[in-house]
Amino acid sequence: MAKTSIINKIYNAGPVILLYYLCISEVDTNLEKTFEIFTLNFQIILIYFWVLKRPEIMANGHIFLAGLINDVVMGFPLGISSLSYLIIIFVGTYVRNKSVNTTIASDWFTFFMAMIFSNLLFFSLLNNFSDLSFPISKIGYNMFFTVFMFPIFWLLFNLYQATFVGGRDA
């Protein structure tokens, strides 16, 4: 019984561990080396899905901390990724509060909205308060591929949830 409980805890911690690992390690989801324009913000997909489906396993504090770590590793001003992730949480929680039953299409659309708000804040803060400049085309590619890949990860995370975590939808 105790063993099952520990295994369940590990499964439940999977998404948070993955989030921390993606933020702190060199592993990234930018396949620019093989396909020049393919860049993906995987952290945002991960956060949005789990905030929408099982917010209790993706605590706000962990997401905030992961954002700070991401800023340090990437060289952004501290707190900017956290703010961007918190906007994602906010939209995700709002959608969860407002909806009874969700489909892949509704999640996809609301994810697009969440990413627009989040990226708008992220890039406008960087543009106005730091010396860093970014190619607009890269931002566009990044947003496009992140939205484009969302359904694939939605299905994968749903599979993970059904197999290891247990379903309890909004």
Partner: peptide
């Protein structure tokens, strides 16, 4: 599991951001 509200963390992140900038 949510020990912090989104609003409080947004304020905290903004404080950290402006202190750093």
């Amino acid at each position: 599991a949510q020990k912090f509200s989104v609003l409080s963390l947004i304020f905290l992140a903004l404080i950290i951001f402006f202190l750093d900038v």
